[in-house]
Nucleic acid binder design. Structure first.
Length: 852
RNA sequence: GCGAAAGUGGCGGAAUUGGUAGACGCGCAGGUCUCAGAAGCCUGUGGUCAUUAGACCAUGGGGGUUCGAUUCCCCCCUUUCGCACCA
């Protein structure tokens, strides 16, 4: 019987599903293992690249099951978001309908891949039963002062007509539509993640099993820096202006001050400036620039006409306005120390402002302010303060500590820790998201929706015109409501939440996915959380993971979760890439069907234009996606699974090759035929002892188990190919009797099951076993059976391989050396030479060092 | 510019603590089966030289440590990723 995956895969998929093998009773005892793949946005088009993530997770899940762990592997849908709304506008389908049908399709795809999830815990963030708790969470955060409304300059995408988070702005352009982003002031809801900046930063140190890369990215994003806030008196204002600096030790070198053009005190400062109109125009220009344009413009500034008092030199220093000072960081004002800060240096040179040296290398020349090509910015013990009064001669770290003490003693400032991280803007002027449960009353102001009135449901029958703004805002029935406090007429908030809110706590919800009385079941969640293994793409290294860590802490602070860190282990799988073809001149991508080969060169069929092949992320626009359907039709899901995991180490980027798939299919075909041979061979029980095969089998159990624990799936599969080759050799050579063959083969099936679940279930059954191979046990290696009878000892002469000898195991030094002396080849190399040294590495090699 | 990771056959990739470089697979070549092909199956396959035996070269480049380096150290080159005026 040939191997026909089509016949067996659907059968086992139904069998697992009917038996509900993946459903977990969260109250049942057992050693819990909570694993989770990041829940997907249901876009409806899964390709083999998406498959990697889920296949990897499923292999791991099956492995843990066989190891006897109570493994929980739930799945849900990150179902709110812009694409659904775009589909509604373009194709007239309601976002909900579009989303629900995509979920159906993707669920079927998971099934076809043979992936097991506990669907009894399925959740979708677009369902009221889920998002009502999003709203509840928002209300708690509001109560605790962690949700607030503020007018703030926000990134505005003129084409999408919406506000974008900083992270949705790439190089000054909208992440989605590539339009240039502009700044605009709007009233927005924020979550106060900055209150948690220190805890989020410190918590990274506890995440031993997270990739260093991700921790580093988060650390940089949080951007903790230690320095001091210092007040500079401004006589003309009759008050002080506060600056933040990480180099308070350089304050004697602060020869001017720079304010962000948006700084609130600027208006007063320039009120009587003769060129006020010009300056105001310049400020307006800067404000209108995108971040990108602002940076590309280079450093620009204007003198405000006023001065401030340097609190240490008592000099009057000019106050400038500068486009390079950011209002969003620190106080929006800096003391400029051009001698020791590169940005200040460039600004000073440009506008001829004085440069004063106040730090020099301890063991070197003091830089010359007039000729130095760049600022001197060293701040470790190899630098020391000069021209700096009380800190003169102190090494920089000591100087910083001393000057801060003095600043605090004089009451003009204090030690300060600041973060690059900003509060999380969650307002979206969009329909397809969680309505923010707030009401605006003329009399009572901003009033939260009472908890018992949740959920504030998203009306489903709103019209989608595709024109500017949020459809919700135009739905009178939704907008008009009554004030919970005074009962008078009031209006609802029409902004919806950033979908990152939805995904910031879903991992805790799976444990009690359908509980309509509370957001999480605390005792159960504390049993199952944190997630033992979280799997997802590196693209979520910062935002999703940071927000999830933040919200987990707020739930912890509310007494709802015992843990501050939601994910114990994190694994980021690499991307799947494939070559696509683009016009050599214009760079436009060309469909594969339109590519033809002439003399080994790719050209476009229609036009004959030269094409270049380029490997890139699978995407529709590159015409390089491989849909799984045809592949499964032709080779089966098991082949796709094996190939996907065999292709490369899972954390690395991997190029998909259609030829490579064939290799995986051949391997499974061999396993299949071998099974038939072994089944048919029971009557001839004759054969050798099978010692070698038994040894190989146990060695394989040992290495595969270790490789599973280290996510080395590619080498685990190559190890199984080796075992299968060994079984094949034993069949051909007759070196093993039927019982041994059967034993080894059954072991191979078990070890292969996590990768190729269908074929192994089928063969397991054909071999007469009861129950699922999935619910059988993971084989155990017997160390005694792994030991080789004979070991090969490598012989080197002066470090070069010159021969090898075989000796009985365990090798004895005397026996080894005797064997080597008896070796003809070695004798030739040693003839007439003086042996200087013999290095013996037990059981491995001998290196003979000779002279002459 | 700053930070991080990575460079191994024609290709994807292997190589416990420094100890036989290239496992496993793709591709390729030859063979087998077949009327023929496809699919299987078997054998070979880093490079150079050599009839063979074998020798030499080879893990981005250069240096170092060592009996011995893909692995450790220094310098350089290349690629990828992250951040990008954060005071």
């Amino acid at each position: 019987m040939p191997y026909e995956p089509k016949l067996i895969e659907e059968k086992w998929q139904s069998a697992w599903s009917d038996a509900r093998v993946a459903e977990v009773d969260v109250n049942a005892p057992g050693e819990k293992f909570y694993m989770l793949n990041m829940f997907p946005y249901p876009s409806g088009d899964l390709h083999v690249g998406h498959g990697r993530n889920y296949i990897l997770g499923d292999a791991l899940y099956r492995y843990f099951r066989m190891q006897g762990r109570a493994a929980l592997n739930p799945m849900g849908w990150d179902a709110f978001g812009l694409p659904a709304e775009n589909a509604a506008i373009k194709r007239g389908i309601h976002p909900r309908q579009w989303t629900v049908s995509n979920i159906e399709r993707e669920k079927k795809q998971f099934l076809r891949w043979g992936i097991l999830y506990d669907w009894s815990k399925e959740l979708a963030s677009c369902e009221p039963e889920y998002y009502r708790w999003n709203q509840w969470l928002f209300l708690q955060l509001f109560k605790r002062g962690l949700a607030y409304r503020a007018k703030a300059p926000v990134n505005w995408c003129p084409s999408d007509q919406t506000v974008l988070a900083n992270e949705q702005v790439i190089d000054g352009r909208c992440e989605r539509c590539n339009s240039i982003v502009i700044q605009r002031d709007l009233e927005q809801w924020f979550l106060k993640i900055t209150d948690y900046a220190d805890r989020l930063d410190a918590g990274l140190d506890t995440l031993e099993h997270w990739p260093e890369k991700v921790k580093l990215m988060q650390r940089n994003w949080i951007g903790r820096s230690v320095g001091a806030d210092v007040d500079f008196e401004v006589p003309s204002l009759g008050k002080a202006m506060r600056i933040f600096t990480t180099r308070p030790d350089t304050i004697f070198g602060a020869t001017f001050m720079v304010l962000a053009p948006e700084h609130p005190d600027v208006v007063t400062l320039i009120a009587d400036h003769p060129d006020r109109a010009e300056i105001e125009q310049w400020i307006a220009g800067v404000r209108n620039q995108s971040n990108l344009e602002r940076q590309e413009a280079g450093k620009e500034g204007r003198f405000s006409g006023k001065t401030a008092t340097n609190p240490f030199t008592n000099e009057q220093i000019p106050i400038w306005l500068g486009n390079f000072v950011l209002m969003q960081y620190g106080t929006g004002a800096i003391m400029a120390v051009p001698g020791h800060d590169q940005r200040d240096f460039e600004f000073a040179r440009q506008y001829n402002l004085p440069i004063r040296i106040v730090v020099r290398p301890s063991g070197g020349e003091t830089p010359d302010a007039d000729t130095m090509p760049e600022a001197f910015v060293v701040k470790d013990d190899s630098a020391m303060a000069v021209n700096s009064g009380l800190i003169d001669g102190l090494p920089t770290p000591k100087a910083i500590a001393t000057i801060i003490d003095e600043i605090e003693r004089r009451g003009i400032g204090k030690k300060m820790v600041r973060y690059r991280l900003r509060d999380w803007l969650i307002s979206r002027q969009r329909y397809w998201g969680t309505p923010i449960p707030m009401i605006y009353c003329e009399r009572d102001g901003i009033v939260p929706v009472p908890e018992e009135q949740l959920p504030v449901e998203l009306p489903l029958d709103v019209p989608f015109t595709g024109r500017e703004g949020n459809p919700l805002a135009k739905d009178e029935r939704f907008v008009n409501t009554t004030c919970p406090k005074c009962g008078g007429a009031a209006k609802r908030e029409t902004d919806t939440m950033d979908t990152f809110v939805d995904s910031s706590w879903y991992y805790a919800r799976f444990i009690s996915a359908h509980d309509d009385t509370k957001i999480v079941d605390t005792p159960l969640a504390n049993r199952w959380l944190p997630v033992d293994q979280y799997i997802g793409g590196i693209e979520h290294a910062i935002l999703h993971l940071l927000y999830a860590r933040f919200i987990c802490r707020t739930l912890h602070d509310m007494g709802l979760l015992a843990y501050e860190e939601p994910f114990t282990r994190l694994f980021n799988q690499g991307m799947i890439t494939k070559e696509g073809y683009r016009d050599a001149e214009h760079g436009t991508w060309v469909a594969i069907a339109d590519v033809e080969w002439i003399d080994g060169n790719a050209v476009q069929k229609a036009t004959g234009r030269a094409l270049i092949a380029e490997i890139s992320k699978m995407s529709k626009s590159h015409f390089n996606v491989v849909p799984p359907d045809e592949l499964i039709e032709k080779y089966g899901a098991d082949t796709e699974r094996v190939y996907t995991l065999f292709i490369a180490p899972p954390e690395k980027e991997a190029a998909w090759s259609d030829d490579g798939v064939v290799g995986a299919h051949r391997f499974l075909g061999r396993v299949w035929h071998m099974g038939e041979q072994i089944l048919g061979a029971t009557q001839n029980a004759e054969g050798g002892s099978g010692q070698a095969l038994i040894r190989k089998t146990h060695q394989t159990i040992d290495t595969i188990t270790r490789r599973f624990d280290r996510f080395e799936f590619n080498t685990a599969i190559s190890g199984l190919m080796e075992l299968s080759n060994a079984i094949g050799d034993a069949i051909t050579s007759g070196d093993a009797d039927a019982a041994t063959l059967r034993q080894s083969y059954t072991t191979l099936l078990k070890l292969l099951h996590p990768f190729a679940p269908h074929i192994t279930e089928e063969l397991w059954m054909l071999f007469g076993n009861e129950g699922f191979i999935l619910t059988s046990d993971w084989p155990k290696a017997d160390p005694a059976l792994m030991v080789e009878d004979v070991v090969t000892i490598v012989v080197q002469v002066n470090g070069k391989l010159r021969g090898q000898v075989e000796v009985p195991n365990p090798p004895e030094k005397e026996v080894v050396l005797a064997a080597i002396r008896a070796n003809r080849k070695v004798q030739q190399w040693l003839a007439g030479k003086e042996v200087v040294k013999e290095v013996y590495v037990p059981g491995k090699l001998v290196n003979i060092v000779i002279k002459g």
